[in-house]
């Protein structure tokens, strides 16, 4: 049983620590965000949802960094997150620009509007 094995190996002798709380939040944010990406209709909300998914991922990375801290927290995930934030904001800004352009030209605010109009 792989499950049992992992449990015995990983969790033994651990108490509740800060990073566990944030890992839980991370999984919640990732799931809520993914639900939002697929279910929200409005472009605006879809874009916000991708940012929430991103926040979930970054929170996990930083929690891992905190878990693996020695004299300082593991800097590699921190660097990954900083890079990730910039990349995610770039993508979100582009998405927002597209959404806005679509809104200005057609006054549509969601993909469903498009289908209704055609």
């Amino acid at each position: 049983m792989e499950w049992g094995r992992a449990k015995a190996g990983a969790v033994r002798g651990r108490t509740m620590e800060t990073h566990f709380i944030y890992m839980a939040v991370s999984s919640a944010l990732f799931s809520v965000g993914m639900a939002g990406v697929f279910l929200c209709r409005h472009f605006f909300k879809k874009i916000i949802a991708t940012k929430i998914v991103g926040a979930g991922v970054f929170l996990l990375l930083v929690s891992i960094a905190e878990r693996d801290a020695d004299t300082f927290a593991d800097p590699v995930p921190h660097a990954m997150v900083i890079t990730g934030i910039v990349v995610a904001v770039s993508a979100a800004a582009f998405a927002l620009a597209l959404a806005r352009r679509i809104r200005i030209e057609t006054s549509r605010a969601s993909f469903e509007d498009e289908e209704a109009a055609e």
Partner: peptide
């Protein structure tokens, strides 16, 4: 559905083995 997804993901995080990270090497 969202809750279930979050639960599975959370379990995966909770069972994550300690990889050790790169702190020592960086230092």
């Amino acid at each position: 559905g969202t809750l279930a997804f979050a639960a599975v993901l959370g379990m995966a995080m909770f069972h994550m083995p300690e990889g050790g990270g790169l702190t020592a090497l960086t230092e």
